[in-house]
Design a protein around this nucleic acid. Structure first.
Lengths: 65, 65
DNA sequence: ACAGTTTGTAAAGGACACTTTACTTTTAGT
DNA sequence: ACTAAAAGTAAAGTGTCCTTTACAAACTGT
């Protein structure tokens, strides 16, 4: 599943460490999600969506929609 | 995180086994999600949303919104 | 009451999500 | 060019998501 976290983080002018703190996860987790290593859990996806004021569907994009 | 899977499944008149098949998971997974034992992965949450023609946010409800 | 369907419970195993720690590479400012 | 900040990489450990298997309990219709 692709996602727009990296570009949204850039729009909000946040470092990976900044975002990690807002999401209450470690920077490693942010890196893993941005790089597509794995998908976030559903609660974390909600936290990302809240942080960027968008819906989960606007940020995370299933491979075969 | 609460969810409306059980009621949506009832509206669509599906058994747990029916829904499991549509979602390509086991019945155990449907049971666990309906009973709140754990949250679905993000890809599975997308599959649930597609199945019921609703957004993830309409079906899954974070505890502290 | 009985049989068949649906739902619930449990336990062990594998893969994924996330953490912690530590180190390297890249980028940006002076 | 130097430094500091930011981003990347890696590895081991823990807990969650999902599977498989098996059996028990509840509901439905005849």
């Amino acid at each position: 599943m692709r996602n727009r976290v990296r570009v949204l983080r850039a729009e909000y002018d946040l470092t990976q460490a900044d975002l990690a703190e807002k999401l209450n996860v470690t920077r490693q987790t942010v890196i893993a999600i941005e790089s597509g290593k794995y998908d976030p859990s559903l609660p974390l996806a909600f936290a990302v969506a809240r942080t960027f004021n968008q819906s989960i569907e606007e940020i995370f994009l299933p491979d075969s929609p």
